[in-house]
Design a binder for these strands. Structure first.
Length: 720
DNA sequence: TTTAGGG
DNA sequence: CCCTAAA
């Protein structure tokens, strides 16, 4: 049973930071503008949500609140909201303080969670006024870090009108006008009985979660991720789950100020008393996706058009308004031009497909020695089809549920306990002995004429390339994958007096390069699917490359990593198999998604297959000293603006070095030359070379400046 | 395509 | 290395 409440919130606009005078070039100006457009959208989005929550209290605001009219109340809320953002990876924050507040703290740890502090589950949120809201990243416990760098926006009443705002953002007035005047529908629901695991129910557990353990109040401020595209899916922007709470009102509507220009029914700015649906702020989710999940898939399946997403209890009747979807989509695409993120080898069905089949086919002798290879190869082919739709599927739905599920897995209390336990002074130590890791299969091609030394280096390159970023270590406990990184060892069951032979490790794809959205549990639909086997819960594409290792794990979940290390050492006439794969115990472990495909078939067939866009990130190939030497020499001769010529001159036969690479390398060389030797990393470049780099760089920079000066001089002469 | 520069 | 606006 769910009690719900809706309200509208009209947002009046926000102020754009001044563009620094120092922004000279048009490019920088664009960059600045772009950045702030985005940030503002985010800031606004967050603000809107938070402010929407503030409005929750409006109706029950005490008389001391010195306003009674809805309009004024809104204004009060508006003026009380401060928000700020931080760039890039740092968390976005919204603080909203009503006068004399501090009684309540809410931590919007991510977009799907609002953790209440100091509020009891028995106390209706509606009764709570004087809110003090803060929005912080789920990843950070403290919101202090980097604060000084944060740009702040103050909600200046005098600049509160859309026109002023819009005029401050050149070129985007229409969108912003439309956006800035949008309204937010906040729908809160309280389930008397929540069932964790059902969609939408979120148990909070993050480091930032400071709420009381006994009664965590969790607002599921759902980012309207599902709606970011063309979807008209009805999605609750905000739900409020308070177990065992006695919510006083049921579906009461709140009077709010409407400033919706686009709404024909109102059309002007005045307080209205009217039930309104609201458009959720869409891009918070976007940003989250991009920043945290690094996934740019961001489409909802049209199948959800006008659909009601509800959990099996049917107690969630999300509401999402269609209005302005078109605009949202446009903005979404324009301001947040998420391109489909390229997938990486191990996350890409097509890559696995192509890479493996090609290797295994052409390399028949080895198959004999390693029956595993062909086997897994075949299996991968089998998986490919399913996993591709699977991928598309899941990427559509991560925003809320990725967090939801993650936290669900973790569990609110356990996380809290984890924090506590980690503070315990006496910390027993677990002693592990990992005898060795087996490196995933490497495939190296090298000409017969190469020296052994080159072979060694090539293999080394391949190894470091894999270990450098392509892999991470997974932890298996009694064959089950331990996913929660935040749990303590003790919590997980790894203790000094435990039998540690049940502990295993595996090499697996680096999640930073594998969109986490691929994880089945990130999908709401997976919740309905039975995937009891922890292994099969691996992303199919990732599970395929689970690499067994030998740390006494009773179940060496092993598989071959179809890593095809291309070594373009130009002439690949006679491939030599230098695969170090001598595994005898590697059991192929292929995770075929055990879910019902039809349940996942929310991605329409006409949706362009992502596979066509899946591109493997190029393998990292550090420049050798010899290459640096060649580069320096070429640049000394040709200058810094002719990278194509440099390429042709010095790297013509190094196919894997593009002129962009050379330019980048030069960039880093210059940087390297300028920093202290202690700060340098990687293979040391002889100082002599670095000196030449600096010299050449200075010289050609001067040349360029001179050129430019001459140009300008000529122009002015012409003008005069 | 190539260059330039931010990420 | 990637991405992309501009040229």
């Amino acid at each position: 049973m769910v009690l719900q409440k809706r309200l509208d919130y009209g947002f009046n606009g926000y102020q754009v930071p001044h563009m620094p005078r120092a922004t000279r070039s048009a490019r920088r100006r664009r960059s600045f503008k772009k950045k702030h457009e985005e940030n503002q959208m985010c800031a606004f989005d967050l603000l809107a949500i938070v402010a929407g929550k503030l409005l929750l209290d409006k109706e029950s605001a005490p008389s001391s609140s010195n306003t009674s009219a809805d309009k004024d109340q809104c204004a009060v809320v508006n003026s009380a909201v401060k928000y700020e953002w931080q760039d890039e990876e740092k968390p976005l924050k919204v603080e909203a303080c009503d006068q004399g507040s501090a009684a309540r703290n809410f931590f919007v740890s991510d977009l799907s969670q609002v953790h209440g502090q100091g509020c009891s589950s028995k106390e209706s949120l509606v009764i709570q006024n004087n809110l003090n809201l803060r929005l912080a990243s789920a990843l950070t416990k403290s919101d202090c870090a980097g604060r000084s760098n944060a740009e702040k926006l103050r909600n200046d009443k005098s600049k509160n009108d859309i026109g002023t705002f819009a005029s401050k953002v050149e070129g985007v007035s229409s969108e912003y006008r439309e956006f800035g005047d949008c309204k937010l529908e906040v729908e809160t629901k309280r389930a008397v009985k929540d069932e964790p695991g059902k969609s939408g129910v979120v148990l909070s557990s993050t480091a930032a979660n400071m709420c009381s353990l006994e009664d965590p109040v969790v607002l599921d401020a759902k980012p309207p991720a599902l709606a970011s595209l063309d979807s008209c899916a009805k999605v609750p922007l905000c739900r409020n789950h308070i177990p065992n709470s006695s919510y006083p009102t049921n579906q009461d509507d709140v009077n709010v100020v409407s400033r919706d220009d686009d709404d024909n029914s109102s059309g002007c700015t005045h307080p209205i008393t009217k039930k309104k649906f609201f458009r959720p702020a869409p891009r918070i989710g976007d940003r989250r996706i991009r920043k945290i999940l690094a996934s740019k898939y961001w489409k909802v399946a049209p199948k959800f058009k006008d659909a009601t997403v509800s959990n099996s209890d049917g107690d969630l009747k999300p509401v999402f308004h269609k209005r302005k979807n078109y605009y949202r989509q446009q903005r979404s695409e324009r301001l947040y031009p998420f391109k489909k993120r390229k997938h990486y080898a191990y996350s890409s069905p097509s890559n696995l497909d192509g890479g493996l089949s090609c290797e295994f086919v052409s390399d028949s002798p080895r198959k004999g020695s390693n029956g595993d290879a062909s086997g897994s190869c075949t299996r991968m082919h089998g998986v490919t089809g399913a996993s591709s739709s699977f991928v598309a599927q899941h990427t559509s739905f991560q925003p809320r549920d990725s967090h939801g599920m993650r936290t669900f897995n973790g569990g609110a209390s356990s996380s809290f306990v984890g924090q506590r336990t980690s503070f315990q002074p006496r910390d027993c130590h677990v002693k592990l002995r990992i005898k060795s890791f087996r490196v995933p299969e490497l495939l190296v091609e090298i000409p017969e004429s190469s020296t052994v030394g080159l072979l060694r280096r090539t293999v080394m390159e391949a190894v470091t390339a894999i270990l450098g970023g392509g892999l991470r270590v997974g932890v298996l406990l009694q064959g089950k994958k331990v996913r929660d990184d935040n749990k303590t060892l003790l919590q997980t069951g790894i203790s000094h007096n435990n039998q540690l032979d049940s502990l295993g490790f595996c090499l697996e794809p680096n999640p930073s390069q594998t969109p986490p959205s691929l994880c089945p549990e990130d999908s709401p639909f997976l919740l309905q699917c039975d995937t009891p086997d922890p292994i099969s819960r691996c992303p199919p594409t990732a599970g395929v490359v689970c690499q067994g290792i030998c740390t006494g794990s009773p179940e060496p979940h092993a598989n071959n990593l179809g890593n095809c290390i291309e070594s373009d050492h130009d002439s690949a006439s006679s491939p030599t198999d230098t695969s170090m794969d001598k595994s005898t115990n590697s059991k192929a472990l292929v995770a075929v998604p055990a879910m019902k495909v039809e349940a996942l078939a929310v991605v329409p067939a006409h949706q362009k297959s992502k596979q066509s866009e899946i591109v493997q990130r190029r393998i990292r190939r550090p420049f050798s000293v010899a290459e640096v030497e060649a580069l320096v020499q070429a640049v000394e001769k040709l200058g810094t603006g002719r990278w194509r010529d440099v390429k042709l001159r010095a790297f013509d036969n190094a196919k894997h070095r593009t002129y962009v690479d050379l330019k980048d390398k030069w960039k880093t060389l210059v940087h390297t030359a300028r920093i202290s030797p202690q700060q340098r990393r990687g293979e040391p470049v002889p100082q002599e070379l670095l000196d030449r780099v600096l010299t050449a760089h200075a010289y050609w920079s001067q040349q360029q400046a001179d050129q430019q000066f001459k140009h300008q001089h000529a122009e002015t002469c012409l003008l005069l």
